[in-house]
Structure formats: structure tokens, C-alpha cells
Nucleic acid binder design. Structure first.
Length: 114
DNA sequence: GCCTTGACGTTAG
DNA sequence: ACTAACGCCAAGG
């Protein structure tokens, strides 16, 4: 059994990710800041990595979580080009092959508080 | 238990 | 504009 605090943090991450709207993306750092951890971006990435093997009972749109520059840094964890394909399917625009137009599609988790 | 690695981000040079 | 260093800290070796 892993420690209580990290488990809670991971689960809170999943709860945010599951609410990212279709056609929108957010970043590891934005999620971390929303959860009150200023320098926890890496932990969010770790939570996403852990999700692959976690049993949390529901699916999350992991493909909508990018780094702060809009790069698909987690694409290696998807089969083939699935991450990019899913985003394109949702109408997300790219500025580079593996970089999303953040100006147009960035979603701030703090919008949940409105 | 120490060391390395890493779905990150900021700062310094 | 580009690279290096560092802070973060959980997992796995």
C-alpha cells in the first residue's frame, strides 16, 4: 500500500483530468497549481504514469494533458500515434507535429471554480 | 538504503 | 534563442 498522501494526490489529479472539456487541453503544471502544489508538475506526470497500472474504476482523457508548451510529452505512453490522433479528432489544432496551439485550446482548471 | 530516472517547470547563464 | 542546473519527490533497481 502506498502512502496516504500520494494516493490522495493522484486521485485528485484524476478527478481534474476527467473534467477537461472535449477539444481542450491543459498542462501538468496547471493541474498541480490548481491542487495547491506550486512545484508539483512532475508529481502530476508521475500520477499520469501511475494511472496506466492503477485501478481507479473510470477512464480519464489522458491525451488532453500536455506540458506547458503544448508538447505531447506523454505520447510514448500511448499506442502508436493515438495521443495525437485523439486530439485531432476533437478538433485540436497543432502548430508543430507534436505541439498543440495552446493559445486556442488551453483550459485552466481554475475555471472549475466559476 | 543509496542512486537513478522521469507524462515537469523555473531560473540562471 | 538555446542549454544547463536545479527543485520537486515517488518508484524501481
Amino acid at each position: 500500500m502506498s502512502s496516504q498522501s500520494s494516493n490522495d494526490f493522484y486521485h485528485r489529479v484524476y478527478q481534474v483530468v476527467v473534467q477537461i472539456p472535449i477539444g481542450k487541453v491543459t498542462s501538468y503544471g496547471a493541474i498541480s497549481r490548481y491542487l495547491g502544489v506550486e512545484s508539483g508538475a512532475r508529481m502530476v506526470g508521475y500520477a499520469m504514469n501511475n494511472y496506466s497500472s492503477a485501478e481507479i474504476g473510470f477512464e480519464i482523457p489522458a491525451h488532453r494533458v500536455l506540458n506547458r508548451l503544448g508538447q505531447l510529452t506523454g505520447r510514448a505512453h500511448f499506442e502508436g500515434d493515438t495521443m495525437r490522433e485523439r486530439l485531432e479528432q476533437e478538433g485540436v489544432e497543432f502548430t508543430e507535429e507534436y505541439t498543440v496551439n495552446m493559445d486556442k485550446h488551453f483550459w485552466n482548471p481554475f475555471e472549475l471554480d466559476n
